[in-house]
């Protein structure tokens, strides 16, 4: 990578030199504060559950992660739809950024789900309907990201990715439905993860978890979007440079 050779636009007075801006700076500080509050309430102030003991504390990060993985998936589908409709690069990159962050949160959900499963079920993995759907969501998102990583023209890649991204939502619905039927045909859901009575400080901790992790999600999507935007600019720039060089060669020879 060309990390050492500073580009021609370094330390410019005009425009930011990173993906940060005033808004994201403030957002980042608020996010950190919210995460601090989450740690305080989730790990220290909230009580242990009667049945699950301290394992219930995993819920405060697991449930928001799961919710946001689906939110990210929806954002990808919306971005893909608007891209196909208006051919707007902005929306295409929204789809890309949310898909990558959604994949990250899906991974969090799977790992925390397994770490929650061990103390409560005795094993890391059971073929629970929700956990299985989440694993399928991960695979679907990996497919989408594989299309994003194709070495092809921007137009070709974006168009194909948009089709795959748009289909994420119906796929997720059908997968969830089929997995649910599949599991409930032979047995009832093994354990309802979210305890039956969440109240008081536990409810507040879960709420804090939603707020803090949603803020972090938004921050990450914004920054990832800007990185994707810069990448496209660099690609376009690189193409311009290459064409200019080729022209210069043509003139010289």
């Amino acid at each position: 990578m060309t990390t050492e050779t500073a580009g021609p636009f370094e330390a410019s007075e005009r425009g930011p030199t990173s993906t940060g801006s005033r808004t994201t700076m403030i957002l980042g500080i608020v996010t950190l504060l919210a995460l601090g509050v989450l740690v305080l309430f989730g790990l220290i102030l909230s009580p242990a559950d009667e049945n699950q003991g301290d394992a219930v504390r995993i819920m405060y990060v697991h449930v928001p992660s799961a919710t946001l993985s689906y939110v990210g998936c929806f954002m990808t589908a919306i971005g893909s739809a608007v891209y196909l409709w208006r051919k707007s690069q902005w929306w295409d990159l929204v789809a890309y950024a949310s898909a990558e962050v959604a994949a990250l949160f899906t991974a969090f959900t799977l790992v925390t789900g397994m770490l929650w499963g061990r103390p409560t079920w005795g094993v890391f993995w059971v073929w629970d309907a929700r956990l299985t759907s989440e694993a399928m969501l991960m695979l679907l998102l990996l497919g989408y990201l594989a299309v994003r990583g194709l070495a092809a023209d921007y137009q070709v890649r974006a168009k194909r990715a948009a089709i795959v991204g748009l289909l994420l939502v119906p796929n997720v619905f059908i997968v969830r439905q089929s997995v649910q039927w599949w599991r409930t045909l032979h047995q009832k859901p093994t354990l309802t993860l979210a305890g039956a009575h969440i109240q008081g400080l536990m409810l507040f901790s879960l709420f804090t978890g939603f707020v803090a992790i949603t803020l972090a999600f938004v921050w990450m999507v914004i920054h990832r979007f800007r990185v994707a935007w810069l990448e496209e600019q660099v690609d376009a720039e690189g193409l311009d440079v290459a064409i200019a060089e080729r022209r210069a060669e043509g003139v010289a020879s």
């Binding site: 695979l139 497919g143 594989a146 795959v164 997968v175 997995v179 599949w182």
Partner: peptide, 17 residues
Amino acid sequence: TLLPLLLLPVLAPVLIG
């Protein structure tokens, strides 16, 4: 390699069904 990665997770409900 791309087609199986894209298609098989999508077809999971069909396999189950």
